[in-house]
Amino acid sequence: MLIRTPREGGEGGRAHFFATCPRGLEALLAEDIIAAGGTEVAVTPGGAGFSGSQETCYRLNLHSRIATRVLCRLGNRECQNEQDIYRLAYGIAWPKLFDVSRSIRVHVTAVKAPFRSLEYLTLKVKDAVCDRFRADVGRRPDVNTAAPDVRIHLYVTANEATLYVDTSGEPLWLRGQKIAKVAAPLKENLAAGILRLSGWTPGTPLLDPMCGSGTLLLEAAGMALDDAPGLSRAMKDFGFTKLLDYQPALWKRLCTEAAARRQTAEKLPIWGADNDADAVARARQNLAHAGLDRLIEVKHADILDLTPPAPSGVLVSNPPYGERLGELDALAAFYPRLGDALKKRFAGWYCWFLSADARLPKLIGLRPDRKIPLFNGALECRLYGFRIVAGSARK
């Protein structure tokens, strides 16, 4: 991915990258990029561009809990029509990037672009890649939309197009830890971002009283044990391993260093609960699959009756949002009871809830200290933080 095209200069073995993330977590992503050795970080909605070496790219894929994908920029140009897109793609030396035996898939993202059909743009890029291979090596790569070896991304704006190759492969929030899921699960990188935004740090008691399949618990455990999230994925799952400039010795060294940093513990001050017995079973199954079932306790309990496991700590949860009228009515009745339970039992705790329901702060009867805009996929949410004190919080 450090191959230079006529449009992409570069010195010192550095390339231009763009990492994506859930909207609202861009500042945390920038921290991860800098920690991996990235420079010239430029934050934009949904991600951040940066300059970095091949080691920077590998480190970010291995260690970032926030990134969704790490894309390496191959070239860009002004584009007014589909033929300009074709010229851009054909101008990339694809046979120097990956072998013709590798299968491909093209992804197109457009923002205020003057093109009617994204499918047609996808076809033009695919044709250009295949035509360049045929011209250079006499063969063309196969297309595989389900499980491609190489993912090519085209990003189009009103007057410019940029091509990237995906160094991550499957999205990085797929840690390879969860084998049992529940409806509308929280993605792992959003869960990690919520934990960091809450101010929770390893060693501080943490409770998720509506834990579902245990995503927040798994992420918290990984952070507490300094376990690089990329270690749980097989090496074949990363896109950079399919490229011709893949450096297995470098990748092995980084993985060995990350594995050596792993901490051990007999017990973690992390607890989960849920009033759905099936969700509890799934959370326990996921923790067992990750080798964490002896470190974290998960019980079948209702948050309204739950006794805090420590005198103080951080409570973080992703409660049901409610999308239909009956669900909204049920939540409207639930929120005041939740507020009463928090005031009665959780004095000394900092409680955080991710919700798309703007009524939550009013109906819960508590004034939030923080309201942080976040997106759960395409759904706009707020992360509400409530500091629970004994007695009245009014001055």
Rank of each mutant, 00 (worst) to 15 (best):
Q80P: 02
Q80N: 11
Q80C: 08
Q80T: 13
N81F: 03
N81L: 02
N81Y: 10
N81K: 11
N81E: 14
N81C: 13
E82R: 09
E82W: 05
E82H: 03
E82A: 12
Q83H: 13
Q83R: 13
D84H: 07
D84R: 08
D84Y: 03
I85V: 15
I85Q: 00
I85D: 00
I85N: 00
Y86F: 15
Y86H: 10
Y86M: 05
R87S: 06
R87A: 09
R87T: 06
R87Q: 13
L88E: 04
L88V: 06
L88P: 00
L88C: 09
L88A: 07
A89K: 09
Y90L: 15
Y90I: 10
Y90C: 11
G91W: 02
I92Q: 04
I92H: 01
A93W: 08
A93K: 11
P95Q: 03
P95K: 12
K96D: 11
K96R: 15
L97C: 05
L97K: 00
L97W: 00
L97F: 02
F98P: 01
F98R: 01
D99N: 10
D99Q: 09
D99T: 11
D99G: 15
V100S: 12
V100C: 10
V100H: 11
V100Q: 11
S101L: 11
S101R: 13
S103C: 03
S103R: 15
S103Y: 01
S103G: 06
S103D: 07
S103I: 03
I104R: 10
I104S: 08
I104L: 15
I104T: 13
I104W: 02
R105Q: 10
R105Y: 08
V106H: 06
V106L: 06
V106A: 08
H107M: 09
V108L: 12
V108A: 11
V108N: 02
T109Q: 14
T109E: 15
T109H: 14
A110P: 08
A110G: 05
V111K: 15
V111S: 12
V111F: 07
V111C: 03
V111I: 09
K112M: 07
K112L: 09
A113C: 09
A113Y: 11
A113M: 05
A113Q: 07
P114Q: 02
P114G: 00
P114K: 05
P114E: 01
P114H: 09
F115V: 07
R116K: 15
S117F: 03
S117H: 12
L118F: 02
L118G: 14
L118M: 12
L118S: 14
L118A: 07
L118D: 10
